[in-house]
Design a protein around this nucleic acid. Structure first.
Lengths: 217, 217
DNA sequence: ACCTGAACACCGTTCAAGT
DNA sequence: ACCTGAACACCGTTCAAGT
């Protein structure tokens, strides 16, 4: 403490998280160590403990931030295309892919979070992200494409598809531009299927009873 | 070496992998350490190095085994329902979910493998797994559901969906039985969509040019 | 060809003590 | 209330040396 540095950092928690995001982005999750973050932030290696009880708590906080930002991205993308449902789905799906492309390690971290072992804050953030999708899905009802009672089940399947395509992108089995073609295909197939009599009959004969963890709507 | 243990283990590589699978299954990837594996296998902590240059090489070998087993599971499930395409898709998808349920940490590991940084062996094993899906998809052509030229693109979208549903299951946002309902929905929607005029027009107007990394067929 | 033992440079986590 | 410094029990990785 011979330098003029104050004893209290003042904003250590936020500083650690910011630096953690940089490391996660640049060198991946394996390179993320509490001790290095402490060094880079100019505090002792034991200081982070006041803010994050262990490494997992830090990862949880990162995941929470990630969900919040992803939800904002999706909402922003969707609100720019208010007219046509296909274009809304397309914009939101591309926003998801771009997030995956920009922050593959962060998305991996978010998807790796087990609902029952992660913090309440992470759950709430993931919930908000799913609610965003459900809101988007309701536009399809407004346009008369499918029944209101089908919104949740359809959006879960579509978001699983988008998530799966993002996983293919992250593992670099396709290029970013190829993944956009996959999204085009997926949405075309989704919209075609949801509007069929065949699907209508199926969904009536198989009532929906699932309440997804992390869905408040 | 005062015990009667031979100097050469004889089968150290396989023994390490077997033990690694047990640890991965019981305590997850974070608990997987080369030193512990060495202890449990009765060799020095430096012995594994002859067989796995580093921890990542061990993880690669585990992923490779995983892909091979998953492909076998899918093939077995599909071949038990040779008559009806819907039932074949259903059986294969459920096999995928059961694999995810039995070995969540292993599947995470497999999906985390970046194509360009993992070993040739992992790539080949992942390839074989995808080829299995493509083979299954051809049954849909035989049944006149869609064009032969659409097999790859349709199966990629479907497998992305199944993978996404598996991810939802692994993160425990739904129960295993709920995930099966999601699969039912996804397949119903997929089959309904693939058979529409709308999809047929789309796929003709948007020719398929993607060659997925890890697809030999 | 395969394995050992010591050594190095890291970790996460804990805790008494300082300001 | 927040941070430090020392300590403990782990890691992965390397390498000369043994059989």
């Amino acid at each position: 403490m011979a330098d003029g540095r104050p004893f209290h950092h003042g904003n250590l928690r936020a500083a650690l998280l910011d630096q953690a995001e940089v490391v996660l982005h640049e060198r991946g999750i394996d390179a993320l160590s509490l001790r290095e973050l402490a060094r880079d932030t100019g505090v002792s290696h034991a200081a982070p403990r006041k803010h994050f009880i262990d490494r997992n708590a830090l990862l949880d906080a990162l995941a929470e931030r990630g969900f919040t930002r992803l939800a904002a991205d999706l909402r922003a993308a969707a609100s720019q295309e208010p007219d046509d449902f296909r274009r809304v789905l397309h914009a939101a799906s591309l926003a998801y892919l771009r997030f995956a492309e920009r922050e593959p390690a962060l998305l991996d971290l978010m998807l790796a979070a087990k609902v029952d072992s992660s913090s309440e804050a992470v759950r709430r953030a993931a919930e908000l992200q799913f609610d965003t999708l459900t809101d988007i899905g309701r536009i399809g009802v407004d346009e008369g494409l499918y029944a209101a009672s089908d919104v949740e089940r359809l959006m879960i399947v579509l978001s699983a598809t988008v998530q799966g395509i993002a996983a293919i992108l992250i593992s670099r089995r396709v290029t970013p531009s190829q993944s956009e073609v996959l999204i085009d295909d997926a949405i075309a197939l989704f919209l075609a299927g949801a509007a069929t009599e065949s699907w209508k009959r199926f969904s009536e004969q198989h009532p929906w009873t699932i309440r997804v963890q992390g869905s408040a709507s």
